[in-house]
Amino acid sequence: MGNIPLYQHIVIALKTKIESGELKIGDKLPTEAEISKKYNVSRITSKRALTELENANLIYRVQGKGSFVNSVLPANRSLDKASKEILLILPFTHNPGLGDYEKGINEYLAGTEYTLNIQSNTIVGQGKLLQAALQSSNSGIIFYPVSSISDLGILYQCHLSQFPFITMDKGVEGIPFLSVVSDNFDGAYQATKHLIENNHKKIAFISSLKVEYSSSIRERYFGYLKALFDYDLIDQSVNDVTERYLKHDDDNGREYYIRFIQTILEQGITGIVTENDIIAIEIIQIAKELGLSVPDDFSIVGFDNIHLASFVEPKLTTISQDFGTMGYRAAQSLIQLIEKPHEQSMENVVVPVKLIERQTVRRL
Rank of each mutant, 00 (worst) to 15 (best):
I258N: 04
L90N: 04
Y60G: 01
V172R: 00
V124Y: 06
I196N: 08
I356W: 10
Y328C: 03
Y7V: 05
Y114F: 14
P145C: 00
Y114I: 09
K247C: 10
I59L: 08
Q157C: 03
N305M: 05
K315N: 09
K24M: 10
I118M: 10
P96D: 00
P5Q: 01
I86V: 12
F92T: 06
I261S: 04
Y108L: 06
L337V: 01
S136F: 09
Q131E: 08
Y245A: 02
V238M: 11
T317S: 12
I272T: 02
I35V: 14
G291E: 04
R259F: 02
N121R: 05
F222K: 14
S67E: 09
D186V: 06
E19Y: 12
D296H: 11
M326D: 01
Y328H: 14
V69N: 03
E32A: 03
Q267G: 00
N95C: 04
N184W: 08
K354D: 07
Y144R: 12
N239D: 02
S310Y: 03
I35Q: 10
S120C: 10
A204V: 12
K47M: 07
V350G: 01
S320R: 15
Y245R: 12
E339A: 01
I264C: 03
A49F: 12
F298K: 14
A309V: 11
D169K: 01
A191K: 13
Q190W: 07
N95T: 04
L129V: 04
S345C: 05
L73Q: 11
G2L: 10
M168D: 01
G171K: 15
I86F: 09
V180L: 11
R363P: 05
G125T: 04
R362M: 13
D250N: 13
S320M: 14
G271P: 15
Q262D: 12
Q236G: 00
A331R: 14
S320A: 11
P352C: 00
Q321W: 08
S161V: 05
K103S: 05
T242L: 07
L50K: 15
Q344V: 06
F92Y: 15
V69F: 05
P145V: 00
L265V: 12
T263C: 08
G302N: 09
R48Y: 11
T45D: 02
A204G: 08
Q267L: 06
S208G: 12
A331N: 10
G187L: 08
S161R: 15
L292R: 15
Y221G: 02
G64R: 13
Q119V: 14
L14I: 15
A309W: 14
E173T: 04
I123G: 00
N106Y: 02
S333H: 05
S333Q: 13
Y231F: 01
T274K: 13
D186W: 08
A82I: 10
A49W: 14
V211G: 00
D235I: 10
I86K: 13
F185V: 04
Y231H: 14
S237P: 14
Q285K: 15
